[in-house]
Write a protein that binds this DNA or RNA. Structure first.
Lengths: 142, 142
DNA sequence: TTTAAAATGTTATAATATAACAGTTTTATA
DNA sequence: TATAAAACTGTTATATTATAACATTTTAAA
């Protein structure tokens, strides 16, 4: 268990009129408890101990819900999901992914880096969301 | 057809002792000719007019080959592939993806942006490759 | 308190990707 | 130039990831 504080999610649902249902709660627990990004079908397996014979749509719905609300992120290069470390909605995500041990470090930027901002302005492109995935080797593996 | 200059790829193979086989050539042609990122199974369909009854592994092998050599990139958030616009190997990719029309603009950075570099150094993480995908709206759609 | 909205349950299937192994083509070397 | 090794392709099957479609249940609102 890395960081299992479900209160923000719970409060968020309360405040915004979303239901904190059992599938949602359990899926968030599973993803938040995972030290590493976790695949949807691994979540599904684990979900089996809280919910009787769950099916893929149950997992994907909950994943989509939390993703939309910014509580989890999808690591595109791994087809896997991680709990957001920031605990708030943000437009962009940055991850450093260790190719050796699978550790993922989320870094926090509130803005697009200048170099990219400049290039988007040059191209007159209006960015709304972004996802940066940096692969490499973490300090323990390096 | 956006930019169908196959000579660099051909020369690259020549120089490095790789074979420019029919499946490789045709797959590169198809991806290079596409104005938008193209999915593997769409490549497979198109490949049917050059090669008799091709199968997924044929496409994926060629895709993996060109990807490894840096001639094409995978857009992770779209499960699709584009020809590299830089025409050289580079450690990182940056894309701006229009959510309206699907246009993808590849931008060229030789280095990680400072803001990210700093955060990787802080975390003592050694980056080797990266992929940045920025979604938004292009000037024609905006 | 019934109605609408939100959410789940369930079955089936779509979309993306790879494993495994036989066969072929090319290259290197004897 | 014969032959062996390496690189590459062909083919069958299947794994992995994700969603469509529709019936049912739960909750909130009128």
């Amino acid at each position: 268990m890395t960081h299992l504080n479900l209160q923000p999610a719970s409060e968020y649902c309360e405040t915004n009129g979303y239901r904190l249902t059992k599938p949602r709660l359990e899926v968030l627990k599973i993803i938040s408890s995972s030290a590493k990004p976790i695949g949807a079908y691994e979540v599904l397996e684990k979900l089996g101990s809280a919910i009787k014979n769950p099916k893929p749509p149950t997992v994907y719905r909950a994943i989509d819900f939390w993703k939309d609300q910014g509580f989890i992120h999808r690591i595109e290069s791994l087809n896997a999901y991680v709990a957001c470390e920031a605990g708030h909605r943000h437009k962009g995500s940055q991850f450093m992914i260790c190719n050796d041990c699978g550790l993922v470090i989320e870094t926090h930027l509130c803005e697009l880096p200048e170099a990219l901002k400049n290039s988007t302005i040059e191209n007159t492109f209006a960015p709304s969301r972004w996802n940066f995935e940096i692969h490499g080797v973490c300090k323990d593996c390096g």
